[in-house]
């Protein structure tokens, strides 16, 4: 029984790792009942290999998280792991195939700034903490349109159009 339980626990955790978007991450232990072996027969579309930009940006984020407090000479704290994770999560949701890769910069508020300055587009996303973000966007080919600046919390829909432009132009 103990061996069986261990097997189920391992299965449940593996599943949580690969599918946290569609299943619980609260680590159910499934003590008595189920083995997921049969469910594994169903391939999942979102189990894609990690893309190179994700690894590059992940490495940059980890470097920023590890910075010492006062890294800028003004006592600014390093970005927290939560903020870095949230930045990666948001990027993961807005980046498309062939989207340009942003610059990743630690900010003077202890947050993380993601910046795109190319193709006559300026797009900046400042992530202060999870659910505390601010975007700034300007398309220089649309001279009549003023720059857009807005706060974002959980809804990142306003980033779709700028990202589409950045990707397709």
């Amino acid at each position: 029984m103990a061996v069986d339980n261990a097997q189920v626990r391992e299965d449940a955790f593996s599943r949580a790792l690969v599918s946290a978007n569609v299943a619980a991450t609260a680590a159910p232990t499934s003590n008595a009942s189920a083995t997921l072996a049969r469910a594994r027969a169903f391939p999942r579309a979102y189990e894609e290999p990690e893309r190179k930009w994700q690894i590059d940006i992940q490495n940059q984020l980890v470097e920023h998280v590890q910075m010492a407090e006062g890294w800028d000479g003004y006592g600014t704290p390093a970005p927290s792991m939560d903020t870095a994770f949230f930045a990666l999560l948001v990027l993961n949701k807005i980046m498309r195939t062939r989207s340009p890769i942003p610059q990743v910069v630690p900010s003077s508020t202890g947050g993380i700034q993601l910046e795109w300055h190319e193709k006559d587009i300026d797009l900046e996303l400042h992530i202060f903490a999870p659910y505390q973000c601010e975007m700034w966007f300007q398309d220089h080919r649309q001279a009549k349109q003023p720059p857009t600046s807005r706060e974002l919390a959980a809804d990142f829909g306003p980033l779709n159009e700028p990202m589409k432009l950045l990707t397709s132009r």
Partner: peptide, 27 residues
């Protein structure tokens, strides 16, 4: 002891992410 569960944040307005982000390259 067990491996930590990755953080999860519900967000909206964008298509579902295809890959779950992980940050684990710590010294």
């Amino acid at each position: 002891e067990h491996p930590p569960i990755p953080a999860a944040f519900e967000t909206f307005g964008t298509p579902p992410a295809q890959v779950l982000p992980t940050i684990q390259f710590l010294p």
